[in-house]
Design a protein around this nucleic acid. Structure first.
Length: 289
DNA sequence: AACACCCCCTGTCGGC
DNA sequence: TGCCGACAGGGGGTGT
């Protein structure tokens, strides 16, 4: 489901509901999601105060008074639903199958937070705050695309000498962490770059960064920023923690628009769908070179 | 190291 | 109508 803008939207919803509150009870309705829950997972959450919510790449981080961090990855179909009333009162617009409610978190103030995940590609970890950066899931993560570490110099160096296509390199979380299939397709279209072009072909070997790098960096930042402002993109699964929907999907230029007309001014192209590394890529061959 | 491929799981949709 | 394959916003693991 979720790429960076969707995860950021979920984090903001969880922050409003959880920060400063005490976790009273955690019910696991199965023993695993993608991975088994850690030993004593519920016991290590219960009684803790939530210090703050944040995001790293596509991970949700909830820092606890114990010094541990609850780490959640939503996979493809993970959702959180928050009910301030405590009783089941889901009135959101997406189908909700209680059979896939795998974790129920009750806060001391009566708020109930339910984690629902039909495909169970999501998972939850509990990691000591001091060990987070060296944790196997985090130590190899690349830069945050909206942070200062993503810049032309960094990307030029990361692309230098690489024969891999731009689509795959931008999807690689070890280089930039947080992009996924939608926003890579959109950023490449915005910057006029072909997804099948070799990454190394827009990098310089020495001196300043290649001239096509700056538009790419700007496009990545632009599309992510606008998507966060729109509350993310709602396709099949993604909803906000209050059940409402994001609306950035209405702003897609290429994603899921096969056979549609290119929206770039003066471009007469048609959006094509191809498969790269087993994932769909949408692009306009007329204006993306 | 870098890259390609298969896998995990459930649901949905389109074609026949 | 039903069945069946393709595909879905994730990425881990393994082979070359």
């Amino acid at each position: 489901m979720p790429e960076l803008p969707e995860v950021e939207t979920v984090v903001r919803g969880l922050d409003r509901a959880m920060t400063g509150k005490i976790i009273e009870r955690v019910e696991l309705r199965r023993e695993n999601l993608r991975f088994p829950f850690p030993d004593r997972f519920s016991a290590n959450l219960e009684g803790q105060t939530v210090a703050n919510l944040s995001r790293r790449a596509k991970y949700i981080l909830a820092r606890l008074s114990s010094g541990n961090v609850l780490v959640v990855h939503l996979g493809m179909s993970g959702r959180f639903l928050i009910d301030a009333g405590g009783a089941a009162n889901f009135h959101h617009e997406l189908a909700h199958k209680p059979a896939h409610d795998h974790v129920v978190i009750d806060l001391e103030d009566g708020t109930r937070i339910t984690y629902n995940d039909p495909r169970r590609f999501g998972y939850m970890l509990l990691v000591a705050d001091a060990e987070l950066d060296s944790h196997p899931r985090f130590k190899s993560l690349g830069v945050e695309p909206l942070g200062n570490h993503l810049n032309e110099t960094y990307l030029n160096a990361a692309f230098r000498g690489r024969a891999t296509n731009l689509k795959a390199v931008l999807m690689d979380q070890r280089i930039i962490a947080g992009l996924g299939n939608i926003y890579v397709c959109e950023a490449l279209h915005l910057s006029g770059l072909s997804p099948i072009r070799k990454a190394g072909s827009i990098a310089t070997k020495r001196g300043g960064p290649g001239k096509r790098i700056a538009p790419l960096v700007a496009s990545i930042r632009d599309v992510l920023t606008r998507a966060i402002e729109a509350g993310g993109s709602s396709l099949r699964d993604f909803g906000h923690t209050d059940g409402s929907l994001g609306y950035f999907q209405h702003n897609f230029n290429v994603y899921d628009r096969e056979d549609g007309s290119c929206v770039k001014p003066a471009c007469q192209g048609t959006i094509r769908r191809i498969v790269q590394n087993g994932r769909s890529t949408f692009y306009c061959a007329a204006c993306q070179k």
